[in-house]
Amino acid sequence: MAESLLVASAESLRREAEVFTRYLVARSPSDYVAAKYRDGHRVIPYRRLTGTLPIDELLVRVARRGVALAWLADTYGRIFRHDGPLRQKLVLLTAILESSPSFHENMTGSRSTSRVRVYLTLLGMGLGFVVRLAVAMLVFGPVQLVGALTGPKPRAESERPDG
């Protein structure tokens, strides 16, 4: 049986750090970044929930498999699970990368670019996003729909009857 998001092993987190860092900045993480990513999971908000949605489990499991799938899952997550576990993990990693030696340079605009190139980048990114979103909706949409119709909604631990 696959492990739950709420009890992800050190190995799973190491794997996520590797794939997600390559997804975000096209480099492998340093040991420091990977360790910080693991430590950050002690306080990441979704772990305070009593359970997870099937769509969130699926998005993270798919994203772990490789850069292209991470991109697809994140595209879907941006629109339909904006504050879900996958986005939380990616934001955590972004925050770590921007604070880490050498990686912080990948996060800021230190090079000059022509205005035309900026507009072309914006256009390219926007179009790419729309295409990926269409594919992602076909892949992940049905799972979220079924989950929403059948499954219970996770609650914060403080909302537990005994909490």
């Binding site: 994140d74 986005r87 934001v91 921007e98 605009g109 990114m125």
Partner: peptide, 26 residues
Amino acid sequence: SAVHPIIQNLPLDLRASLQVFRKAHT
């Protein structure tokens, strides 16, 4: 300032947001 609070609000996935952010940072 910190980058991550800004790029998570851009209406794109994080990889695309980061690339857009780098060109728009200043």
